[in-house]
């Protein structure tokens, strides 16, 4: 500025202020540079043909995926669901049971007072109020609108806090370098993972691998469906037969229900 703090007027101010002009120019350039990527992205999304948007619509909360597992049909020695999950998602053991990933596992429980024993599959419960989502510092652990709880491995920093928070010990950490992943089940070293409810299958109207295997070769104990749809098979069954959620006292409202527990 050509004005000074004392009262002497040193010279006439010019018709325009060159500094102000260059400042405005710099600001305009900066704004343009900031907006440009957004404009490009916007035009990318706009350039997609309209059919693509209708075909590939976003998932909505009208649907809530859930499972009903009938323990009356679940046999103690059978682990078809576990093998199917491992085969579908490319989970390979490395001979290190403490660090190998397990997305679903069979748990054997026995009542010491009566001697009665049962077997049940334990997997991510896809809670309505998931503690793993609450504690994730980057928001990588998230719940999709249709109720499936996932880990966004692009954002996961591998702090394992969600593993501390999960009451069901559903999450695993990838402890080694992985190769030859399945193209629909990306997983990598240093990130946390858990059962995805076979979201890649669900999005193309198929059943999760464990449910399919159980009905094909197992005991037929697992039923998958939309809990929000009153006409679905699962909604009718949970209305008709009593079913429980594990650790219901925590108020997490899991999407996996067990019958005959």
């Amino acid at each position: 500025m050509s004005r000074k703090t004392d009262n002497t007027q040193t010279q006439e101010s010019p018709d325009f202020d060159p500094q102000r002009r260059s400042f405005l120019g710099a600001m305009a350039t900066a704004a343009g540079l900031t907006l440009a990527p957004g404009v490009i992205l916007y035009s990318i999304t706009k350039s997609q043909p309209t059919e693509a948007r209708e075909l590939y619509a976003a998932v909505s909360s009208d649907v809530r995926w859930g499972m009903l597992i009938d323990l009356g049909r679940c046999e103690s020695g059978c682990d078809d669901c576990v093998s199917a999950c491992a085969k579908e998602n490319g989970l390979r053991g490395h001979g290190r049971p403490t660090t190998d990933a397990q997305w679903i596992r069979k748990v054997d429980i026995k009542d010491p007072q009566t001697g009665n024993s049962k077997s049940l599959p334990m997997l991510c419960q896809h809670c309505e109020n998931p503690p793993c989502v609450d504690v994730c510092p980057t928001g990588a652990s998230f719940k999709r609108a249709d109720g499936i709880v996932l880990v966004d491995k692009h954002t996961c920093i591998g702090c394992r806090y969600c593993m501390m928070a999960c009451p069901y010990k559903a999450r695993s950490f990838v402890h080694e370098v992985l190769e030859d992943q399945k193209s629909f089940a990306p997983r990598g070293k240093g990130t946390v993972e858990s059962c995805t409810l076979c979201v890649h299958r669900i999005d193309s109207d198929r059943l999760p691998a464990c449910v399919e295997a159980c009905s094909d070769t197992g005991g037929g104990a697992m039923l998958f469906g939309d809990l929000n749809n009153p006409d679905s098979e699962i909604s009718k069954r949970v209305a008709k037969y009593a079913s429980q959620q594990i650790r219901a006292d925590l108020g997490l409202k899991p999407g996996i229900r067990y019958r005959n527990l």
């Binding site: 490009i40 992205l41 693509a52 075909l55 590939y56 619509a57 976003a58 609108a145 692009h154 999005d203």
Partner: peptide
């Protein structure tokens, strides 16, 4: 110039909204 922006946008759409468009 833009394949990285395209991929980044697509990955968020696929993960969070289940949009699995092929393009």
């Amino acid at each position: 110039r833009n394949h990285m922006l395209v991929l980044k946008h697509q990955r968020d759409q696929t993960m969070h909204e289940g949009i699995r468009s092929k393009k």
